[in-house]
Amino acid sequence: MQALDIAGLSAGYGRYDVIHDISLRVERGEAVALLGPNGAGKTTVLRAIMGMIKQRRGQISVLGTDVSRMPVHLIARGHVALVPEGRRLFLDQSVEDNLRLGGLHLRRDHERTERLLESVFELFPVVERYRSRPATALSGGEQQMVAIGRMMMSDPDLMLLDEPSLGLAPLAIEDMAQALITLRERGRSILLVEQRVDLALQVCDRIYVLSGGRIVEEGNSENVNADGRALIDAYLG
């Protein structure tokens, strides 16, 4: 059973479609990148998966369950978690509160919540050091760690990340890439939206290239490294 299976998806804002007839899949335990230039519709794909925008056509299945018409909170409780562009932490709350809010639907399972919290602290020791600080007091890179930690706290079957490298210093990007590789090695299913091709190829097993709201290329990261790099560069400019 696939972690994510999208078939013939069209969605957009108002009366206009931004993405057209998108089909893609993420196998269980696989990391997949969705690459594309600004305005290609990458974020729209993630928003459609999370139910944040209404899709017009197509079907989205997570672990075999059709989530196409589900409200956002039920999709989240059905084990899909999102790190949105710009992180969108709850800035007036502490780091620990942000993390615990990520595990909202597991609130009655204290043991599991504590275990997940420990795993976040293990992956990001700096987050444990700052657990009682307000989220707004952290640097961009540290906030990104908290955002990934918040996503981990729901113990999701599918992790969606929207341009996690955006606005980060090179060292912070490297830390974040290592964290994503660790998550992939732990068997997490990941759909990563990125503009940085090198980061996507470093982290992911397969890639899709999106341009003008349509998928124009797909393949394994290794093949892309060998043959398709020029093609991706052509699309990403």
Partner: peptide, 17 residues
């Protein structure tokens, strides 16, 4: 705290369940 989260970003609060 969920109420605070909804207050600051209702869409993101929804996305955490």
């Amino acid at each position: 705290k969920v109420g605070m989260a909804i207050s600051s970003d209702p869409e993101m609060a929804s996305a955490i369940g």
